[in-house]
Design a protein around this nucleic acid. Structure first.
Lengths: 201, 201
DNA sequence: TTTTTAAAAGCTAACCGTTAGTGTTACGGT
DNA sequence: ACCGTAACACTAACGGTTAGCTTTTAAAAA
């Protein structure tokens, strides 16, 4: 493929960024619900159809950047050190993600999301998809739980941890607390011989 | 209240049932996405606005009956025998709910729901709301976990159990397996007198 | 270079779920 | 018998989304 990215792709990326920037500006200025797609298109000086050729939906305009949530969770599982146990690796990643979205300069965006039911639902639906892909990644891990049901359960618990910790008074402490529960749940899936034993026969 | 329900309320209920029946018939006949609200209104011989005065959304037409999910979970917590522990009570209720929706003559409806992303999302959003109210019910229970974060976590796990068990090959066994994990998670929130913890000194 | 292709963007017009505004009917309490 | 109002109808619109078709323009073929 063309190693120098080519003018076409650069222009496309520029248009995409122009749209996303215009959208976020208007959303923060007037409120998400008070801004229509037609407004966004006008502000970015593009056609409405162009907006939808770059973004699948109005909500997707808001979640442009942090759509690497799923990727990061997957990498936390697949790219970890050889003998590092599964759950703590996930806990560290969730902790980092929670820190990222609570401490950053993302406060106005977070407030906007909380204020709009449509955006909250969209985010929750995205988390479900992430849970599914995380479940298959966990199911392919040497340190996995024994049944696929258990893998999917752990995956759900992990993405739930993110949602719950963000809303807690002390997000970092909440991550710790929830992951103690997840760790216990994970151990309950092991062959019930010795509770201090994490490596089966 | 008026013990004889009155003609007005009877007519209202009849209209509601007429709409729901017409909708379900068309949905199963032609597929959910291929039927518009205007089709439903015409089939039920009512105006479009009447449909929306009885149902909040198109998706709500499908989930007409089993909207007692949340109620049943709440009652499982509040109406249980004086010293019955919390988690097993919830396990029994989830087990009953799973049995109800997998064994019944609801198979075509379930297939329709699985076939439509809009319906799946709607159901998942409803489950989230149920988790929230369940969390507050658990937080008011004498047998509750110690922190509100733990209460909310357990509530999420419980409603997740329903979703996961339904999709499993053996739903009843999945309920058992997931609730073993939930029970372990719940015990991990108790005062840690026992040093078989995951983070040893 | 010139020509050809196809991707990107544009425009118009619609579809569909949903709601507002405005009447009209008919039940229920007085 | 009368009034208030709940239920329903009708029309029109709004806002997100998509289809169909044309125009521009980068890139590859000639």
């Amino acid at each position: 493929m063309t190693v120098p990215p080519g003018r076409r792709e650069r222009k496309k990326a520029a248009t995409r960024r122009k749209i996303a920037d215009a959208a976020l500006r208007l959303f923060l200025e007037r409120g998400y619900d008070a801004v229509g797609i037609r407004d966004v298109a006008a502000e970015a000086d593009v056609a409405v159809t162009t907006v939808f050729s770059h973004f699948a939906s109005k909500e997707a305009l808001v979640f442009e950047q942090d759509e690497d949530f799923g990727q990061r969770l997957l990498r936390a599982v697949t790219d970890r050190a050889p003998h590092e146990p599964l759950i703590p690796a996930l806990r560290n990643e969730i902790g980092a993600l929670v820190r990222h979205c609570t401490a950053d300069g993302t406060a106005p965006i977070q407030r906007m999301i909380e204020a709009s039911p449509a955006l909250r639902e969209y985010e929750e639906a995205a988390r479900l998809r992430h849970a599914e892909s995380l479940a298959t990644a966990i199911a392919a891990d040497p340190d996995r739980p024994r049944t696929t049901t258990a893998c999917r359960t752990i995956a759900r618990f992990v993405v739930d941890a993110y949602a719950l910790a963000r809303d807690a008074d002390d997000p970092e402490a909440a991550v710790e607390e929830i992951f103690r529960m997840i760790e216990a749940a994970r151990e309950a899936t092991l062959p019930s011989a010795d509770p201090t034993d994490t490596a089966g026969p």
